[in-house]
């Protein structure tokens, strides 16, 4: 059972090796309940592997991971984690609303503690009038918004997001990070967000964890002490640029420049 002392995500000495490839060196990471932590690093450094280990989609070769004191497998079985994959992964035969309900419909015997109304959420992300549409009728950005709603609708205390905006153009991407901040802030879920984008990392996070090249290891952490709620004009603030520079410098240190 979970206890207060174990609350949050704890990654202790986790490493992952696939056959002859070390994907992730030993990594320690904690994410407190309600905290938004971004993992950033060069391509192939093991960011996604780390996320998949936390989500119980892979098992670590070494070390241990707990979510509120439980193993990732147990947390998965209790639907304590909402997952947002890189591709929207919408089911083409389900309408937008049915896709938004998907994670609630699956393993339905496990009642989520605080499910949100997917229709309300679709309204909040500007897709109310597309409830009955099919995924192929939506743009890439709209599809990814449905992917976010699907994860938020679960009402899980933790969300894992794997570069969800990677395939979008720069303007859609900015819109999506602003929308995600608006969705995250009132929910109070702990979030692990994987990205390549400095702007996303700084705008969304309470903390940014920088990984070095493969096999990924933590090369540094930057605390983002910008005020919340965060709004788009923050991105013109000198403090925002300073934090972006700090994260960039750590990234470059990680790759040996």
């Amino acid at each position: 059972m979970s206890t207060g002392a174990e609350a949050g995500i704890e990654v202790v000495g986790a490493a992952k090796r696939f056959d002859r490839v070390d994907a992730l060196a030993t990594v320690d990471l904690t994410v407190a309940p309600g905290e938004i932590v971004t993992v950033i690093g060069p391509s192939g450094c093991g960011k996604t592997t780390l996320l998949r280990l936390i989500g119980g989609l892979e098992t670590p070769s070494a070390g241990a991971i707990t979510i509120d004191g439980e193993t990732p497998e147990r947390a998965k079985g209790r639907k304590r984690v909402g997952f947002v994959p890189q591709a929207p992964a919408l089911l083409p035969w389900r309408t937008v609303e049915a896709n938004a309900r998907l994670l609630l419909d699956l393993n339905a015997a496990v009642t989520p503690p605080r499910p949100s109304d997917p229709v309300d959420l679709l309204d909040r992300v500007g897709l109310a009038e597309f409830r009955d549409a099919y995924p192929h009728e939506l743009s890439g950005g709209m599809q990814q918004r449905v992917g976010l709603v699907r994860a938020f609708a679960l009402g899980a205390p933790y969300l894992l997001m794997d570069e969800p905006f990677a395939a979008l153009d720069e303007i859609s991407r900015a819109d999506m990070r602003h929308l995600l901040a608006e969705l995250c802030e009132p929910v109070g879920a702990g979030v692990v967000f994987v990205t390549h984008s400095l702007a996303e990392a700084v705008y969304l996070s309470d903390r940014v964890v920088v990984l070095g090249p493969r096999p990924g290891r933590v090369v540094g952490t930057v605390t983002i002490d910008l005020p919340r709620p965060r709004r788009p004009q923050l991105e013109d603030d000198p403090a925002f640029f300073a934090l972006e520079s700090e994260v960039r410098a750590l990234l470059l240190t990680g790759v040996g420049r």
Binding site: G56, K76, F83, P85, A87, L91, L106, N107
Partner: peptide, 22 residues
């Protein structure tokens, strides 16, 4: 879709659910 399969796995969907719904 492999991404959808992972999504099903992320909430521990049963084999029956994976078969019938995906």
């Amino acid at each position: 879709d492999p991404a959808a399969r992972e999504l099903f796995s992320s909430v521990d969907a049963s084999r029956r659910e994976v078969l019938l719904r995906l």
